[in-house]
Amino acid sequence: MAEQYNLPADSEKYKGEFIVFFPDAENPKVLFHSVVADEAYKKAEEILATEKLRPTVLLVQTSGDNLAQLLAFA
């Protein structure tokens, strides 16, 4: 297991898409990608069932305008 959990190195090319990956792998790889959230979450469930490991689903932001940070000012 990696000492810290990270994004796949090529995540930039999936801007605007939900990616499914294992963040605590040494070199995380994108296992699935889709603009449709439901499809990514469904794939994550399938991976959990077969790999017995819970993956991460993350929307790769299209810009730095991240609403999580926007909320921080609320």
């Binding site: 605007g16 603009v35 959230a37 929307l59 932001q61 299209t62 305008d65 991240n66 609403l67 999580a68 940070q69 926007l70 909320l71 921080a72």
Partner: peptide, 10 residues
């Protein structure tokens, strides 16, 4: 649409 509903977990 997703860009308005998603963002990270805070």
């Amino acid at each position: 649409i997703n860009s308005t509903l998603e963002g990270g977990v805070l």
